[in-house]
């Protein structure tokens, strides 16, 4: 069962990109041991919201609390140090670097020689090789190959493998099954469940309410930068939630008119 105090608490969050109001007064709690499906149409603000949580965007106003402390400074480094691993949709891998170097980018293991930090390439190769084998990359792909060589599915696998390997307290997955085959998709969904069982918080973003309804214990629906639904999967069926998404925009307008 989820803890009483939320691990991540978002309070009245607003975010503007110039004049564009990307997040509108969003408040939501996330607990350890939960698998939360974050659902909504394109442009609903799902990715923007998690990019605040993983430190890429700084909110214009509102508060974010992590583990009982208010987050004052937003940078991916701080989020990672706090144990938040994120599988981003469009970023996360540098094509010009090898798999091993990408794997450890920003947290490179070092061996000091006369105080100077040198990359521990042996360690970097070993662990990333283990992970790419587990995640079924082609046999002729080595950890020293540049990411440029990889297919879309293999890139996604590297990102997922990295997040799982470094998992700590939170794993955020933004459309994790994109580019993946049916079998790989099942593998990823199974991993998400395992992480939840291990007591981590998993936030799973997708368009597909039916897919995530089977996995998640709670669904948060966003629309036009607002949270419009937050319900346990035990209390609403996937069909009911889909109806909410379909009606979403209109319902919001009605609320504003009142």
């Amino acid at each position: 069962m989820p803890d009483k105090t939320p691990l991540i608490q978002v309070k009245n969050l607003d975010l503007y990109f110039g004049a564009f109001h990307a997040l509108k007064n969003v408040s939501v709690d996330f607990h350890s041991g939960e698998l939360v499906g974050l659902v909504g149409d394109n442009g609903a603000g799902k990715t923007t919201l998690i990019r605040v949580l993983c430190g890429i965007h700084k909110p214009t106003s509102g508060e974010v609390w992590f583990d009982g402390r208010q987050v004052k400074e937003f940078h991916p480094k701080l989020a990672i140090d706090n144990g938040i691993e994120t599988i981003q949709q469009s970023v996360g891998l540098c094509d010009n670097l090898s798999i091993a170097r990408n794997f450890y980018l920003g947290r490179e293991p070092v061996r000091r020689i006369m105080g100077i930090p040198f990359l521990d390439m042996g360690k970097m190769r070993d662990l990333s090789t283990k992970v790419i084998r587990e995640f079924g990359l082609r046999d002729n792909v080595s950890a020293d190959d540049e990411v440029e060589r990889l297919s879309g599915g293999e890139r996604q696998s590297v990102k997922i493998g990295r997040a799982v390997e470094f998992k700590n307290r939170v794993v955020i997955m933004d459309e994790p099954t994109n580019h993946l085959s049916v079998r790989e998709r099942e593998h990823v969904n199974e991993l998400a469940l395992q992480l939840k069982e291990q007591g981590l918080l998993v936030i799973y973003i997708t368009h597909d309410i039916f897919q995530v309804h089977k996995l998640a214990n709670r669904i948060v629906i966003m629309e036009n930068g607002e949270k419009i639904e937050d319900a346990l999967t035990s209390s609403m069926t996937a069909d009911q939630l889909e109806e909410v998404i379909r009606q979403g925009g209109r319902k919001v307008e009605k609320r504003e008119a009142v």
Partner: peptide
């Protein structure tokens, strides 16, 4: 080629947004 600084320098040139998302300053 052999230090974290070098790894990050090339990462920034390869994709600044990806490097940023991995916590590189």
């Amino acid at each position: 080629k052999m230090t974290p600084f070098g790894n990050r320098l090339l990462a920034v040139g390869g994709s600044a947004s990806s490097a940023h998302s991995r916590g590189v300053r």
